[in-house]
Amino acid sequence: MTEQRRLLIVEDDATFARTLQRSFERRDYRVWLAHGPAEVEGLLAEAKPGFAVVDLKLGNASGLTCVERLHAFDPAMLIVVLTGFASIATAVEAIKLGAAHYLAKPANTDDIEAAFAKASEGNADVPIEGRSTSIKTLEWERINETLAETGFNISETARRLGMHRRTLARKLEKKPLR
């Protein structure tokens, strides 16, 4: 039997972290969870991970500090940064600090494993257009865009989107803004 791959997940969203953990365990990884930078230090000696998945925004802390610490611990560790706040600046910093890859959420286990697999190689043929997005995600992004444009005025947002105010309120209750 081959030795299990060792993975550290640094994610403050407990539900998402647990989902990733179960998914990676099904793929024969040994997984440790940390919910913030303070927990990373204590897990490093025990876990000795070869792989790490780090959320960029960990409550009020930056995942970049975790990336820096993980890379200092083991420069060969493959680190993937996940974020719902993707920007060129944070992508560049994550790579400079030692991340092998940077993925915008939503990303799943397949995306993360693919990022681990191609960590050492660049791809000049990567498509410039974004990956296909579900209708629900597009709708949610449009709602958020319009909310921001209206200064988070629900009535005006509903009017601009051509939907009833109560319908918009129900959608926002299902997936509240963070």
Rank of each mutant, 00 (worst) to 15 (best):
20 L>P: 09
9 I>V: 13
114 A>Y: 01
82 L>V: 11
91 A>W: 09
126 V>R: 15
33 L>D: 09
26 R>Q: 14
126 V>N: 10
40 V>C: 04
128 I>M: 04
96 K>L: 11
61 A>G: 00
5 R>N: 15
122 G>Q: 12
90 T>I: 07
135 I>R: 04
11 E>H: 04
109 T>K: 01
117 A>N: 02
119 A>W: 09
51 F>D: 09
101 H>T: 02
24 F>S: 04
125 D>S: 02
76 A>K: 11
12 D>L: 15
118 K>E: 13
61 A>K: 07
48 K>W: 03
38 A>M: 13
47 A>M: 07
22 R>T: 01
35 H>A: 11
122 G>W: 11
9 I>N: 09
39 E>Q: 14
137 T>R: 02
53 V>F: 01
33 L>E: 14
137 T>I: 00
71 H>Q: 13
134 S>H: 00
121 E>R: 10
33 L>T: 12
46 E>S: 12
128 I>K: 00
134 S>C: 03
25 E>F: 01
100 A>R: 15
40 V>F: 01
55 D>N: 06
130 G>Q: 08
28 D>E: 08
22 R>P: 00
74 D>Y: 11
51 F>W: 14
53 V>G: 01
86 A>H: 00
106 P>D: 10
125 D>T: 01
92 V>S: 06
45 A>Q: 10
14 A>T: 15
42 G>Y: 11
85 F>L: 12
19 T>P: 03
46 E>R: 13
121 E>I: 02
124 A>T: 01
25 E>S: 00
29 Y>F: 15
44 L>R: 05
45 A>P: 08
76 A>R: 13
58 L>Q: 07
21 Q>Y: 12
61 A>P: 04
137 T>V: 03
34 A>T: 04
66 C>I: 04
123 N>P: 05
19 T>V: 09
105 K>Q: 02
56 L>Y: 11
65 T>N: 08
80 V>H: 05
24 F>A: 01
18 R>N: 13
64 L>T: 08
75 P>K: 13
93 E>H: 10
47 A>F: 07
67 V>Q: 10
86 A>N: 00
64 L>W: 03
